[in-house]
Write a protein that binds this DNA or RNA. Structure first.
Lengths: 132, 132
DNA sequence: ATTGCACACGTTATAGCATAACGCAATTGA
DNA sequence: TCAATTGCGTTATGCTATAACGTGTGCAAT
């Protein structure tokens, strides 16, 4: 997909995510946008839905949060499966793409005649800076 | 970890999960155990916490649900990283272990000096039986 | 120009997931 | 016996996500 023009709400949400140092929950985003007129969760969720569709934002399932894609200007859907390392101490996220992992996983699902739609790989732990 | 004796609540929760054909949410488990005296979510969550610790139950992050481990009698923590294929139509879950995937992912986190604690791999899609 | 459609938006309400904080009872081990 | 630990029950609360309704705007087909 190539990214259409963002609406005002989408741009506001994306901007907050891009400037954040760590993934944000929808409600945290909402709070950051109250001054811009945001009032209800749905305003955030609707924007996020589109941003996910455009491939400029990722959802981190294991922490119910959202993060801007590390490859600005590109559609992350084109990178194959994305893996994330999430620091549980500072929240920092590292994004990673590995074709071998893709290949193994897709080979397996294929052998099961399973038709994959969306794949999540998330590694929670401690980043270098936060390690004791 | 080797599994200590389960308490009554843990056994009830585990039993419900083992007999289920698909992952269950904590609240669904609660409803199934009302007749056994369960009243509050915490009774379920506390049992689940232990069952996860014992390695006899998995949490599926992407659907906020829980499933009994496919390897009864063993501690799933010993199998390395576990991947799940989750059918979005019928709910069925297939469990999978692949050392090559483990190896690639762990090699990568190592190169990042990232210390992994818990890894999630979940593939949502359609199982063979549910495919059109 | 008018009609119809698609889409984004705003609002209220509600559903679904998870934990905090309190107190009690049973068990264990010093 | 005493203290520490663990499990349990209950109430209350907080966080995450969506349903349902209505409004406005832009645009294309007639």
């Amino acid at each position: 997909m190539n990214t259409p023009q963002m609406t005002r709400n989408q741009a506001l949400v994306f901007d907050v995510l891009e400037k954040a140092e760590a993934p944000l929950s929808a409600y945290t985003i909402l709070d950051k946008l109250r001054d811009q007129g945001f009032r209800a969760p749905l305003q955030v969720y609707r924007a996020l839905e589109k941003l996910l569709e455009y491939g400029v934002v990722h959802r981190l399932e294991s922490i119910n949060s959202f993060v801007a894609c590390a490859h600005p200007g590109e559609d992350c859907h084109s990178h194959g499966i994305v893996a994330f390392a999430i620091c549980e101490s500072c929240g920092q996220v590292i994004e990673f793409h590995d074709h071998e992992v893709d290949h193994r996983l897709m080979g397996w699902v294929r052998s099961q005649k399973f038709k994959p739609a969306k794949t999540t790989i998330e590694i929670r732990g401690t980043c270098e800076a936060c390690a004791a």
